[in-house]
Simulated assay, not measured.
Amino acid sequence: MNQSIIFVDRVEYDENTKRVSYFAQASGQLITCCYSTNKSKEDALLDFESKKFDYEDIAENAIEDELYNDEGLIEVEELL
């Protein structure tokens, strides 16, 4: 685990985009990590919590590899 990347205890669900967002801090910068889902808000948040460490590991690698999308976000695939 890279100690310079820290995940904050915050997760959000956007009803309009059906996107789950979670956040990391690296070098003082807040980085939004996200994925799209077809689940309801409640199911999506429960699913995220059950796979939180897997999502964080995937996002950490993407941050280290600077795989930001055009919006400046780290976008990952939903884990099934």
Rank of each mutant, 00 (worst) to 15 (best):
M1K: 09
S4N: 12
S4C: 00
I6A: 12
I6K: 14
I6E: 12
F7M: 03
F7P: 11
F7G: 10
F7H: 11
V8L: 15
V8A: 13
D9H: 15
D9P: 14
R10K: 10
V11K: 03
E12H: 01
Y13F: 14
D14Q: 15
E15C: 07
N16D: 15
N16K: 11
N16P: 08
K18L: 01
R19T: 14
R19D: 10
V20G: 03
V20D: 00
S21F: 00
S21Q: 08
Y22C: 00
Y22R: 03
Y22V: 00
A24R: 04
A24H: 05
A24N: 09
A24M: 05
Q25E: 15
A26E: 12
A26C: 10
A26I: 04
A26Q: 11
A26G: 00
S27G: 08
G28M: 06
G28W: 02
G28H: 01
Q29V: 03
Q29F: 02
L30S: 14
L30R: 12
I31D: 08
I31L: 03
T32R: 14
T32I: 04
C33E: 02
C33A: 05
Y35E: 09
N38W: 07
S40I: 06
S40Q: 07
K41F: 02
K41L: 00
K41C: 01
K41G: 02
K41R: 15
D43Y: 09
D43S: 10
A44D: 13
L45P: 06
L46E: 04
L46W: 01
D47M: 10
D47Q: 13
F48Y: 12
F48V: 01
F48P: 01
E49L: 10
E49G: 02
E49F: 03
S50Y: 05
S50C: 11
K51M: 03
K51H: 15
K52N: 06
K52L: 06
K52F: 03
F53T: 11
F53C: 05
Y55V: 07
E56M: 09
I58S: 12
I58C: 12
A59F: 00
A59I: 03
A59C: 07
A62D: 10
A62R: 04
A62W: 01
A62Q: 01
I63Q: 10
E64T: 06
E64V: 07
D65M: 04
D65F: 03
E66G: 01
L67R: 15
L67T: 06
Y68K: 06
Y68C: 04
Y68D: 06
N69T: 09
N69L: 08
D70V: 10
G72M: 10
G72A: 09
L73N: 13
L73V: 07
L73R: 13
I74M: 11
E75I: 08
E75P: 07
E75N: 09
E75D: 10
E75M: 11
L79C: 05
L80C: 04
L80R: 04
